Amino acid sequence: MEQARGLVATDAGMQVLWHRKPFSHVVDYDSWDEELLEDAGIMRHIEIGSMVPLSTGMDGAWEFVVRWGDEAALTETEQRHVVVSSEPYLLVSETDVRVGGIEHITGNAEDDEGFAVPLPPGRWSVTTHMIDADASGEQLDFVVLIKPGTAGERYRTSEQPFERR
């Protein structure tokens, strides 16, 4: 199991896990606007597995841990302090996977914000877990687990990773 960690900010209400190649043509605000401003564009990328929504829809900055591999799992402390978990999302990657605010998706590596996830190419199943950082005593808000996808697995396609209660 491997892991990457970072603080990720957004002013657009959505942190995402994304694969750069499907966004290689996004090089300025106009191309970003055309691809991702409308819900239909966001939904298309979620459905094809080029982007996974990770957060609650609020602006701000949160600490993310991303773990990947067959053994990717929550720690015992994290398990005790999970507030809510998402259903699995599809991520299809070749190279260059990142976590960042949706407004920072770009095909220009020099413009990157957030952090890299050196995930091997493949078809992946992604779940996000919101952690009660105050109760756990850790500087950690979300744990993202990435495991190999399985044939026939059904994936969530909502822009909201968590069911509203």
Rank of each mutant, 00 (worst) to 15 (best):
E2S: 15
R156G: 04
W18R: 10
S50P: 02
S136Q: 08
L17W: 00
V26C: 01
S136P: 05
E159T: 13
E159V: 14
A109L: 15
S136D: 08
D132R: 04
G49H: 02
G60P: 04
W18P: 09
F142Q: 04
F64Q: 10
A133F: 09
A116S: 14
M58W: 11
E34I: 09
G41H: 03
H104F: 14
E113C: 08
R44M: 10
T106E: 01
S85G: 13
G122D: 05
T127I: 01
R44P: 00
T150G: 14
T56G: 15
D59M: 09
T75N: 08
M14C: 04
P53W: 03
E2I: 00
T157G: 11
E153T: 03
E78V: 06
D132E: 11
N108F: 10
V143I: 09
D39S: 13
Y155S: 12
E113M: 13
Q79M: 13
L91H: 03
G100E: 10
A133Y: 09
D96V: 01
D112M: 13
D132F: 03
D30S: 14
S136A: 15
I105S: 06
W18F: 13
W62G: 02
T127K: 12
D28C: 10
V8G: 04
G41R: 05
D132P: 04
H45D: 11
T95I: 05
D33V: 01
V97A: 11
V117H: 04
D39E: 14
E110I: 10
S158N: 14
I46H: 07
E94K: 14
G101W: 04
I42G: 00
G114T: 04
G149P: 04
P161H: 09
E76Y: 05
G107S: 03
P88N: 07
V97P: 06
E103W: 06
Q15M: 05
Q15I: 11
V84Q: 11
E63Y: 01
F115W: 01
S158K: 06
V83G: 00
P161C: 03
Q79L: 10
M43R: 15
A135R: 12
A73W: 00
T127Y: 01
R164N: 07
G114L: 01
S86W: 04
L37H: 12
Q160T: 13
L37W: 07
L37E: 09
Y89W: 05
L17K: 05
P161F: 02
T56R: 15
V82S: 02
S85D: 10
L119S: 10
F142M: 11
R80P: 00
R5N: 12
A151K: 01
A12P: 00
Q139K: 08
V8H: 04
